[in-house]
Design a binder for these strands. Sequence first.
DNA 1: ACACAGATGCAACTTTGTTGCAAAATAATT
DNA 2: AATTATTTTGCAACAAAGTTGCATCTGTGT
Lengths: 140, 140
Amino acid sequence: MQEAVQNILKKNQLSITGSRVRILELFLEQQGALAHGDIERRTGEKFDRVTVYRTLQVFLNKGIIHSIPTSDNSVLYALCKDDCGEGHHHDNHVHFVCDKCGNTLCLEDVTVPAIRLPKGYKFSQIQVIVNGRCKDCNRD
Amino acid sequence: MQEAVQNILKKNQLSITGSRVRILELFLEQQGALAHGDIERRTGEKFDRVTVYRTLQVFLNKGIIHSIPTSDNSVLYALCKDDCGEGHHHDNHVHFVCDKCGNTLCLEDVTVPAIRLPKGYKFSQIQVIVNGRCKDCNRD
DNA sequence: ACACAGATGCAACTTTGTTGCAAAATAATT
DNA sequence: AATTATTTTGCAACAAAGTTGCATCTGTGT
Ligand SMILES: [Mn+2]
Ligand SMILES: [Mn+2]
Ligand SMILES: [Zn+2]
Ligand SMILES: [Zn+2]
């Protein structure tokens, strides 16, 4: 774990600092997506709010995490497992928001389908957000 | 227009008030989606910010408008053209955000495709947001 | 015209996000 | 290991976005 975290930071030419290590750990421990608020809480407010914002911004730029739009318009972030880099995101998967437990998951194996757009439209990116009941919340 | 506005309000058993009429007019004049801020500006700040929030909330509940999640996490609203009602939204279309002009459009004719979810997952709603260049911004 | 329910505006507040700058921590150099 | 240069951090102050309670006003049905 420590290992993995350090590798990610080095690969992206980022200095190894407390907040970066801790926040990356959170993402690695967790399979779901995290909101800014989650991160503040789980770090026990050890880091300034501004630092968390800036750290997330850096991770986003470097392609370490990607952001996920949700229907209730909260900003969520999740690790990029595909090989994203500086300015180059290609997370081509569907996002699932569980209405019961509230978890948001990257369904890495479910790729976004092709969309037939009207004449004249050109797409650059397609996001699919599925709401429903997740695997865990469905067995009862 | 006046006609249409009054009909929508009556059909939903809402009293006909200045803010409701004006805000509905804005939606009818406009083919794209509106953010809270847009509405404040276009009404010339004639109505209190709180009133705008509450009006949008009421329209949302009644199924007169629906909200649209965007990748930059601003809240957008657009008229429901399908027959949505109290608690029953079934806007089954794709949303398009133009990266150039910033407009967000309901592509009423483009329905969201079926998504094959992993075993155990059940969906209740699927949202598709497409980014790119709109028809107007593409001819040059 | 009147009474009542509901809508509005105001004030006060919370939450969320941004910016400039000095102090502290990290990385590079000697 | 010590010194320097470069980043990163925390603080303070601020701005924007959204919420709540309450008194007043407006629209609607009688
Ligand atoms: Mn994802
Ligand atoms: Mn729509
Ligand atoms: Zn769940
Ligand atoms: Zn456009």
